[in-house]
């Protein structure tokens, strides 16, 4: 069942044919095992869509239909408006960045060779590959001089995933497929890499299809979330809407919709009707000021830490544009729940 509201995924498409489109995609194994069941949705160009659901819900299978590692039994997958079946599979895959959990890196190749793999398959000249590898390693925060000649077994889990991301970006694809890329990392490293991916995405605007079973990860990274269960799409909505209007009891339980703090985590200061700028206590130190893009969970945490429940908000130029109070914040969160 798809939520009754118009799909947020199709409403904001930048160019009509860019991105990924699933059109009534099904995948069955044998007569009775239907792993993906009549799934349709769009991943608009430049958006990050996260598929979330329990293991075995078909999310990884669906992801692999995009780069043709799995062929759907019926239905069609479009990439930039073209049926993926019309592409040479190898060329299609070289044009799509692919990040996977754990075994993604080739253990017998150095970091340099791993990152330069797709450009070398595409036949780039050596100097161009070397320059690109350096650029990509710097992009993901690894010093090429230090890490380039190491083997994957000589890296930490977080470093390996950074290399995996660098490799996926190396041939500068428009589209990234990410299959539980941070699943094997400890909580601290996972959170750090999520933050870095979000920052990278804000600069690069790739079309990302991301699969995870971690709801917090989905809420943090997604422009829109697709919830899957037993091969079907249960709901597709932006994070806040998913929390405030879960389609059914399954989604409500999956996202723990009643958790107000979680709801605050997907809302930003700019979503709240602010109080007048002079509302803040005169003595409040200016260092307490919030930015418009800070999330409300962070604002709440700041309030609890300082004991000051009325914080100034500055815009990008540093001008104080209003005051965020606890009451206004909770009001906004309740309104969002409509």
């Amino acid at each position: 069942m798809i939520s009754s509201t118009p799909s947020p995924l199709s409403s904001q498409t930048a160019a009509p044919h860019a991105g990924i489109r699933f059109d009534r995609v099904s995948k069955t194994y044998g007569p009775h095992r239907r792993v993906v069941d009549d799934v349709s949705f769009d991943v608009p160009a430049g958006a990050c869509v996260v598929i979330v659901g329990p293991s075995g819900c078909g999310k990884t299978t669906l992801l692999k239909t995009v780069n043709r590692l799995i062929e759907p039994t019926s239905g069609t997958v479009f990439v930039n408006g073209r049926d993926v079946r019309s592409f040479d599979p190898s060329l299609l895959r070289r044009g799509i960045g692919y990040v996977i959990q754990q075994v993604g890196l080739f253990p017998h190749m150095t970091v340099d060779a791993n990152v330069g793999l797709v450009p070398s398959l595409a036949g780039w000249p050596r100097e161009r590959i070397e320059a690109r590898v350096r650029e990509m390693l710097e992009l993901v925060g690894l010093d090429p001089a230090v890490f380039g000649r190491r083997f994957p077994s000589q890296l930490s889990g977080g470093q390996q995933q950074r290399v995996g991301l660098a490799r996926a970006l190396a041939a500068d694809p428009d589209i990234l497929l990410m299959d539980e890329p941070f699943g094997a990392l400890d909580a601290i490293e996972r959170s750090r890499l999520q933050g870095e991916l979000a920052a990278l995405q804000a600069r690069l605007h790739k079309t990302i299809l991301f699969v995870t079973h971690d709801v917090d990860e989905a809420l943090r990274l997604a422009d829109a979330i697709v919830v899957m269960r037993d091969g079907r799409v249960v709901q597709q909505d932006p994070p806040l809407r998913l929390l405030t209007r879960p389609a059914d009891a399954f989604v409500a339980e999956l996202v723990n919709a009643a958790d107000l703090v979680r709801r605050l985590s997907v809302m930003r200061v700019r979503d709240v009707a602010l109080g007048p700028p002079d509302g803040a206590p005169a003595g409040a130190p200016s260092g307490d000021a919030l930015g418009q893009d800070d999330d409300l969970r962070c604002a709440l945490s700041r309030m609890l830490a300082t004991g000051n429940f009325s914080l100034r908000v500055r815009d990008g130029s540093g001008t104080v544009i209003g005051t965020l109070t606890l009451e206004r914040m909770l009001e906004a969160a309740r309104l969002a729940g409509g």
């Binding site: 299609l92 895959r93 070289r94 692919y98 996977i100 797709v118 595409a122």
Partner: peptide, 10 residues
């Protein structure tokens, strides 16, 4: 999985 990753790279 290594084989699939390699195919996934093109």
């Amino acid at each position: 999985a290594v084989r699939e990753a390699a195919r996934g790279m093109g």
